[in-house]
Design a protein around this nucleic acid. Structure first.
Lengths: 345, 345
DNA sequence: CATTAGCACTCAACGCGAGTGAGTGCTAAT
DNA sequence: ATTAGCACTCACTCGCGTTGAGTGCTAATG
């Protein structure tokens, strides 16, 4: 598999991939010699192309068309041929333009980051906010709703707000809730939600000996509040950009993609894989996932602030994607979001 | 314009609209006589159809095809011919299935309602949560972020949570914030946000004479927190359902629609018109709006709880939509959501 | 021996024209 | 007023030749 492509083959493969990315039309031998100043005749190029096809880097839609890159071809291109340029000053300024985020809460910021990714890359932008369980607890509030129902609001170090409804069984008075809130807000900050949960479990186990009634209630309540996983927050922007791609002309492929983009669950699965890695990751075509996003590539990067919150963002587009542009965009945006997270803490 | 259609014409128009909704193919005179037991010959039906075309209720794609309803035709059908059946027991039970909303916060409930609308109607579901300014204030909380930035969290009577970030200029201590929070939470509940805002303005004008420093700070802070409009919360579900419609085959129409569905702003404009009315409203095709959702119809209904919060929900689909099914679905769902809002207060 | 010119070959894409059939509008008969 | 009959229209389909970009092979070339 690790065929040692000689330099000429590499150059030609690179030329084909780049031309194809630009034109979306199969590339013929003659086109190559014209657009690039290789000192080669079309015939020679044809021979090389035939070899590249044998090795699985290229494919021909039919005999009398040019060649198009296979997924393997793209992959080789991305891994070995592509050199990522730095982002142009203009782009960087555009991305970093703070006014866009001014006075926005985290939710809106995440959405705005999605818009940004989509707008600049002209593909579809994805943002997965940091998993709530891994974020650092900052504050908790309880609001009484009707019939013994309580609204619990958590705020994390990085300014993320989550709320859920619980039914604790006991009807606490406003005063009791305030005390409980106070107690918890003095004891819990600084730990991740997961740690908080463990702490609560420990405290409750040792309850009989040490805890006052208030303390016990406080822990029971927060235990209830933290039960069950909070659903991931996913933000998608620019889905219609997908339809603009000349690659997805068939109804079928469009629908498949749009359905996937609608399903938070599927997006989570896609983005999850990138969560643990560091730096930009690239998933190309079928390699990336079993036909769920057939014909698509995914460029992702985790982002994280100093306080340990880790999320993922990325861009999804056709395999025939402008990698050299998108990769630095994703990279730079991820670092920006990291900084935004820190800003709040 | 108000032509008095005789009964026979009405029957034939109705038959054509219904058949067309079902088959999506132009309806010919012979097809009518076959599928419906009018005691008429195709020729007679043809005459009637020609009349209906003259009056603008029908159109023929080309001479040798059957007729299809015009927007005006649909409109007449919906207003005068269609009788809305009650929702079947099955549907009602399905919609009312409470487990779907169990333990969910308002945000998730709204999203779930969108899914419900989309799932049952098999078109695209839209939900616009009650305007925050018109909801009744229940509780406010402040969370200190870094650098003098404050996170403000509002909770409304119906359990809606909103948060925003403000920079008050002064760096309040945690204790001060608690006092301010306390003070506000005892003074403000029961009013709508708009009323709260007015109240604050009044209090601040009279400040010198009566208010303590704390009170003054409290009002100034909440004034700041309430400045600027909170963006509407819009939930869209089942956008890919739009692509499934055989009516939108052209790239162009698809993209137009998907773009509109992505733009919160445009959706707000669409749903806003229905906000003030009561009961189900139907916007058909071009009538509904200038080409933004060309070829689409919109069925909406406002929903409201006892506490005055008013939102809008609806279904958007092709003009060739199954009105008799969708209308009761929207109606029933709106009343359900009204009840869900009350549940919290 | 790698490269290239030359050439026959392939095949999607395009355009054209005949055939088909669903559906219409008109006219004359009932 | 309704209907049977009939000529007419026109989108749609299918087959067929033409076109041209591009290929693979072979033989010539430096």
């Amino acid at each position: 598999m690790g065929e040692p492509l000689n330099e000429r083959s590499q150059n030609i493969l690179e030329a084909i991939v780049e031309d194809y990315i630009q034109t979306a039309e199969p590339i013929g031998s003659r086109a190559i010699t014209k657009r690039h100043a290789f000192d080669l005749s079309p015939a020679t190029v044809r021979n090389v192309m035939a070899d590249l096809e044998d090795m699985g880097f290229l494919a021909s839609p039919h005999t009398s068309a040019g060649r198009i890159p296979t997924d393997k071809g793209y992959q080789y291109y991305v891994e070995s041929l592509l050199q990522v340029r730095d982002l142009s000053e203009e782009f960087r300024n555009n991305i970093e333009d703070d006014s866009r985020f001014a006075g926005k809460n985290m939710e809106d910021i995440m959405q705005e980051v999605g818009n940004l990714l989509s707008g600049i890359s002209s593909y579809t932008g994805l943002v997965m906010a940091p998993r709530f369980n891994s974020t650092i607890f900052r504050q908790i509030e309880f609001v009484r709703l009707s019939q013994g129902r309580l609204l619990v609001i958590f705020v994390s170090e990085s300014g993320l707000v989550q709320n859920k409804v619980i039914e604790p069984g006991i009807d606490f008075s406003q005063r009791e809730l305030e005390s409980i809130t106070n107690y918890l807000n003095h004891r819990l900050p600084g730990m991740t939600i997961t740690q908080v949960r463990e702490r609560i479990a420990v405290e409750l186990r040792e309850e009989k000996t040490r805890l006052s009634k208030l303390q016990k209630q406080a822990f029971e309540l927060s235990d209830k509040a933290l039960q069950g996983d909070v659903s991931e927050q996913i933000y998608v922007a620019g889905t219609s950009r997908m339809l603009e791609q000349s690659d997805f002309t068939s109804h079928d492929s469009m629908m498949k993609i749009m359905r996937t983009l609608e399903s938070k669950q599927q997006l989570i699965e896609l983005l999850d894989r990138s969560q643990s890695a560091s730096g930009v990751q690239i998933f190309i075509g079928s390699q990336s996932t079993d036909s769920k996003i057939e014909g698509c590539s995914l460029i992702t990067s985790p982002f994280s602030g100093n306080n340990g919150a880790v999320g993922t963002l990325g861009v999804i587009g056709p395999v025939r994607m402008n990698y050299s542009q998108v990769i630095p965009i994703v990279d730079f945006t991820a670092s920006l979001v990291g900084r935004l997270l820190d800003r709040e803490s």
